[in-house]
């Protein structure tokens, strides 16, 4: 199949970027989306051009390394999947595909389609953990956790930290990311001890880093490769209220 690709190119963080249009011939519907980009890069290298930098690693939707805003949607058009799980069978011969990096003040572009997501780490550093030193843990079964809570905690914890929520959000808010961690740990008895400071500090950190605020459009939930529910944001809001009032 032949494609027209409109891709954001930017040499480095300081350089000014722009869209470059590539006519790609000979792609196959059997490719994954990222394999299609691999193929594009092969053709670019052979022509002596600089290949398009994009991030990927596990290519099975769990590491959260891949990103890409494809034709106006985070991780492309499929729900519950990361870009690495997107297949070219979803496209037709002659299609034009616009490929952009995540865009947010807190996610500066490093090169082409690669952004810096360190801001997520900074948010977690503000409290996204349980302070349990190795060796100090009690016997695992000494703290029963109702199954319903454990399951919900798992759903929250399935966040892969890719940043799709931020991109999908018209406000570039990191609320779903924060909620996934706060909610997971709030649901578990182990995490209750630090629940207050966690909610307060993580929110404050996200504000400081320049993420927007949540307006409950729900786009994050739809574009999240793991389908993490807005209900976790509601829990975050409750935790925040409890922590500040």
């Amino acid at each position: 199949m032949n494609l027209t690709l409109k891709i954001w190119r930017q040499k480095n963080a300081k350089a000014k970027g722009s869209f470059v249009t590539y006519k790609l011939e000979g792609a196959s519907q059997e490719m994954s989306f990222l394999e299609m980009l691999d193929y594009l890069n092969t053709t670019l290298i052979k022509k002596g051009e600089d290949p398009v930098a994009f991030e990927h690693d596990c290519r099975e939707g769990i590491c959260g390394t891949c990103s890409l805003y494809i034709n106006g949607r985070a991780h492309g058009q499929d729900s519950m999947s990361a870009t690495c799980e997107l297949r070219m069978s979803r496209y037709k011969d002659g299609d034009t595909i616009v490929i952009e990096p995540w865009r947010a003040k807190a996610f500066p572009v490093i090169k082409d389609l690669i952004v810096d997501r360190l801001a997520f780490e900074k948010i977690l550093e503000a409290g996204g953990f349980i302070s349990a030193n190795a060796g100090a843990a009690p016997e695992a079964n000494s703290i029963p956790v109702p199954r319903e809570h454990a399951d919900k905690a798992f759903d929250a914890a399935s966040c892969i930290g890719c940043g799709a929520c931020v991109s999908a959000c018209k406000n570039a808010s990191a609320q779903l990311f924060i909620a996934s961690k706060v909610s997971q740990l709030a649901l578990l008895p182990q995490g209750r001890a630090e629940a207050k400071s966690r909610a307060r500090n993580m929110i404050a950190k996200a504000d400081e880093l320049g993420f927007g605020s949540c307006t409950n459009t729900g786009a994050c939930e739809v574009e999240c490769p793991k389908g993490i529910s807005l209900a976790h944001i509601a829990r975050l809001n409750r935790e925040f209220l409890k922590a500040t009032l």
């Binding site: 106006g72 949607r73 616009v98 807190a106 307006t215 459009t217 729900g218 786009a219 739809v222 574009e223």
Partner: peptide, 28 residues
Amino acid sequence: WLTFWNQRARPEKFLKVDQSKSSTWPSR
């Protein structure tokens, strides 16, 4: 105030945005 704050969170806009599948028009 929040709207302007949120505007600042994405200084460089996307070229192509399709939020029709992920959120309602009023919410945006």
